[in-house]
Structure formats: structure tokens, C-alpha cells
């Protein structure tokens, strides 16, 4: 397997650290006036999602992680696994609860998600940044109340709960930012 030296560390590089695949988020080189230089690196453990900071000696190396991000279509959930398909090859993958995590709240069948494969198996799933979903449950809308800026909770088909303006009703289609879980606006669909 290939390995990377600290001089090649950059954001997005996938490396093995203590047996787990990690994504490098940031790397800063620190060099005292005279003496040993270091690399201060922020990494995200792709298995646990934990972000950690480590200090390496310059020119230390880490093994490359066999990790690849692929765009895949979300097909369905069979109760235990979430099934995805690569649109080009029609290869199918099943991801378990650990891999899908909170992404399950934002995935609609046929949406294109980013599936992170580790040694060929799904390790993590990232939903699209913006998704469009239908409001399934919420208090009745207050007609005309578009200016006060108040919000109320609304439940979506996936079980996600987002804050929406008071005038929204069951059956309305809304656009959400999946990174923050925030309501962005009404959508037409």
C-alpha cells in the first residue's frame, strides 16, 4: 500500500492512523527557529466520526487508506440495510446503520448520495447538501402570518424534525440544508 509523507498531507487525503481510516481536514507545518519541524494535523476518524489533532515529525509517513468517495443512488431500506447503486456500473452496495448514521434522516429514494467505501465496503454515507421533502406532520398553518418570523416543528417522512415558518401545512414541500438541518424555503415539486 502507498504511504504519504507529512509534506504530502493535505485536506481530503485519506490515511490510516492507529488502524482506522481517517480523512485529513487540515495540516499546518510548525518549525522552530532551529531544530525539528513538525506537522500539526487535524484528522477525522471515518469510522467513529471523531475529529482529532495529532502532531507528527516532518517526514513521518502514514499509510494510505483504501478509501474512495463514490456518487451512488439510494435505492431502498430493507429494515436492516440501506441499499445503494453506482449509476455507471449498476454495482450495488448495502450499508449498515453505523455507516448511514444521521444521513438516514435526509435520504429519499432515488437521491444521489456520496458513499465512502473502505476496503470496498460502505463506511459512511453523505446525503446531498440540499434535499426536498414533504411535511408529514405539523400544527395547522396560520394563514397570513408570513412576517413575524416565528417557527414551529415539522416532521418529515424520514422522521427528521425541522423548524419551519408558522404558515407551513402538512403536504407542503420544503427544501432543507442537510449539513445544518435548517429549512431553506418552500420548494415546488
Amino acid at each position: 500500500m502507498a504511504s504519504y509523507s507529512t509534506s504530502e498531507f493535505k485536506s481530503g487525503l485519506k490515511v490510516m492512523l492507529d488502524g482506522d481510516p481517517c480523512n485529513i481536514l487540515e495540516n499546518e507545518n510548525v518549525k522552530p527557529g532551529k531544530g525539528q519541524a513538525f506537522s500539526r494535523t487535524r484528522l477525522k476518524n471515518l469510522k467513529t466520526g471523531r475529529v482529532l489533532e495529532k502532531t507528527f515529525k516532518s517526514n513521518d509517513t502514514l499509510e494510505a487508506a483504501d478509501v474512495a468517495d463514490r456518487d451512488m443512488q439510494y435505492l431502498y431500506n430493507d429494515g436492516e440495510y440501506w441499499h445503494f447503486m453506482e449509476p455507471d456500473t449498476f454495482d450495488q452496495y448495502q450499508a449498515d446503520k453505523n455507516a448511514v448514521g444521521d444521513a438516514a434522516l435526509w435520504m429519499k429514494e432515488e437521491d444521489i448520495c456520496m458513499v465512502t467505501l473502505y476496503n470496498g465496503a460502505p463506511l459512511a454515507v453523505t446525503p446531498p447538501n440540499h434535499v426536498v421533502m414533504e411535511v408529514m406532520e405539523t400544527d395547522p398553518g396560520l394563514r397570513g402570518d408570513t412576517a413575524t418570523g416565528g417557527t414551529k416543528p415539522a416532521k418529515l417522512a424520514t422522521g427528521a424534525v425541522v423548524k419551519v415558518p408558522l404558515f407551513m401545512n402538512v403536504g407542503d414541500i420544503i427544501k432543507i440544508d442537510t449539513r445544518t438541518g435548517e429549512y431553506l424555503g418552500r420548494a415546488k415539486e
Binding site: 492512523l17 510548525v30 518549525k31 522552530p32 531544530g35 525539528q36 513538525f38 494535523t41 482529532l52 489533532e53 495529532k54 502532531t55 507528527f56 515529525k57 513521518d60
Partner: peptide, 18 residues
């Protein structure tokens, strides 16, 4: 969080100083 070990005193001094 040093990701290395070393028996060289100078390296630890450089790490702590910097």
C-alpha cells in the same frame, strides 16, 4: 498529541518549545 515516539531529547524540547 504526538503521533511519534523518540529517545532524542532535542526533539521533545523542539516540540514543546514550538
Amino acid at each position: 498529541s504526538p503521533a511519534f515516539d523518540s529517545e532524542e531529547r532535542a526533539i521533545w524540547l523542539d516540540l514543546l518549545f514550538s
